[in-house]
Design a protein around this nucleic acid. Structure first.
Length: 459
DNA sequence: AAAAAAT
């Protein structure tokens, strides 16, 4: 980590150059940020001019501030300090795909609007609707929401969207993935036709362009060099590991590398819960976050992680996009995501704000194909490594109380595992010279042999 | 393939 920042040959603008309203500029100054990121430098003047914008940018590129700051600036034209809700109609509506993201955008809006009379409210599902209803009835200029709960409020007539002059669709590609299109259509029909529209997405797919055509008017396109999300400050590596070794590998990495805050991505909600539970039993401070947990538990886990009370946050892809936790030094893909784009989003949780980060992937030999898909997308090779695990931690976990252990035939570890590590086959009941299985041969070597997966690829 | 989101 160096103190010097590599500057491109563009002149280093500062936030004072944008002509932001003084109250907003003051809040920016208090955050300590002075130099806008590329997406901010490009998008902010356009938004301040009232243009519609399609932006391609990962979160962590400063995207949230890139739309929040100019929106607040524009709203200051209407600002008043009256207590009447009628005097605080919703002027800007920001939609996000997940609840956590809505909460996070809300935090940002609160931060940047604190020296202004502008009010903001955030609404999303999974929590008591009452306080949200009260807040909406008190009035707010900026509303951040997930689509479902917003429509709920609309039906209950808690909010009127008839004066929304600015609409933001954040992580629009994700919203489409999640089937929000019908909800979005319903919401947009409630808005005035004359409005400013901003749409942010990781990529400009055909579907996104179509969405842009139907919701935006003559949008300017802002594409921040996709940074491949594999920013130079994120080191990537992939370790071939058998499923039975992955948990020990997490423990080993956390303990030996001294990572204080690691996000571990698993592909399933059940696997996520179980892994967190087992890690705790292994002496790792861990919690899980996924969509089957109550919103309260999700928020608790995230808050504990942000507060540094957890070493590991085990997560499904609910946390893959947009979540901004400062200073996460390492992301582990416990399972490889089956979509290469998800990989990019997941590892984007580390190496943020110019800090360095590590992205570690575990993979089984038959998953080599996914790794290659990812490499194709990010246009670079992910080095394969070999992780030497301390022999002792390879023992299977003792059963967690009240939980049935998966059935494992007592005397026969699966042959595939042993093949993979190029070891002689040793039934586990005869095992164990105490001076245990030093794996002399890098696992990656044997991984190379699985040519079958190469042939099997391609759709 | 699985995840997320109103109840």
């Amino acid at each position: 980590m160096t103190d010097t920042i590599q500057t491109p040959d563009t002149p280093a603008a500062t936030f004072t150059d944008f002509g932001l309203h003084p109250s907003i500029l003051q809040a920016v100054a208090e955050t300590g940020y002075t130099t806008p990121t590329p997406i901010q430098a490009e998008a902010m003047p356009l938004v301040m001019d009232g243009r519609d914008v399609m932006g391609a940018a990962q979160t962590g590129t400063g995207k949230t501030a890139a739309f929040t700051l100019p929106i607040l600036h524009r709203l200051m034209q209407y600002a008043n300090t009256s207590a009447s809700p009628a005097r605080h109609p919703v002027r800007a509506l920001i939609l996000t795909p997940t609840r956590e993201l809505a909460d996070q955008v809300s935090d940002s809006v609160i931060t940047y609007s604190k020296s202004t009379p502008l009010r903001s409210t955030v609404v999303f599902g999974g929590v008591d609707i009452g306080p949200q209803r009260e807040a909406l009835r008190r009035g707010c200029e900026v509303l951040i929401a997930t689509p479902g709960r917003l429509l709920d409020h609309v039906e209950q007539k808690n909010v009127n969207l008839g004066q929304v002059g600015i609409l933001v669709l954040d992580e629009a590609d994700r919203m489409l993935d999640m089937g929000f299109l019908p909800d979005l259509d319903r919401i947009v029909r409630l808005l005035p036709a004359k409005r400013q529209g901003l749409l942010f997405s990781a990529t400009f797919s055909n579907e996104i362009r179509k969405l842009g055509r139907s919701y935006l008017t003559n949008p300017a396109e802002v594409e921040v060099a996709a940074r491949n999300a594999t920013a130079e400050n994120v080191t990537q590596i992939a370790y071939p590991l058998a499923g039975s070794e992955k948990r020990a590998a997490v423990v080993h990495l956390v303990k030996s590398r001294g990572f204080n805050q690691v996000i571990v991505f698993s592909n399933t909600k059940i696997g996520t819960s179980r892994l967190a539970r087992e890690l705790v039993r292994d002496g790792v401070k861990a919690e899980s976050i996924h969509g089957d947990k109550s919103q309260l538990d999700r928020m608790k886990a995230l808050d504990a992680f942000k507060a540094g009370e957890l070493e590991v946050l085990v997560a499904t892809d609910v946390a893959a996009r947009g979540l901004d936790v400062a200073g996460v030094p390492c992301v582990i893909n416990y399972d490889l995501p089956h979509s290469a784009e998800d990989y990019v989003h997941r590892i984007g949780r580390t190496g943020r704000a110019g800090k360095s980060g590590e992205a570690i992937a575990f993979y089984a030999p038959e998953e080599e194909r996914y790794l290659q898909d990812i490499e194709k997308l990010i246009k670079s090779k992910i080095p394969r490594g070999h992780l030497a695990l301390p022999a002792v931690s390879r023992r299977p976990a003792a059963p967690v109380r009240g939980e049935r252990r998966a059935y494992t035939p007592g005397s026969a570890p699966t042959r595939a595992v042993d093949d993979f590590f190029d070891k002689p086959y040793v039934p586990s009941n005869t095992v164990s010279s105490p001076a245990t299985p030093e794996r002399s041969k890098p696992a990656a070597e044997s991984g190379k042999k699985s040519i079958g997966v190469l042939l099997g690829g391609g759709r």
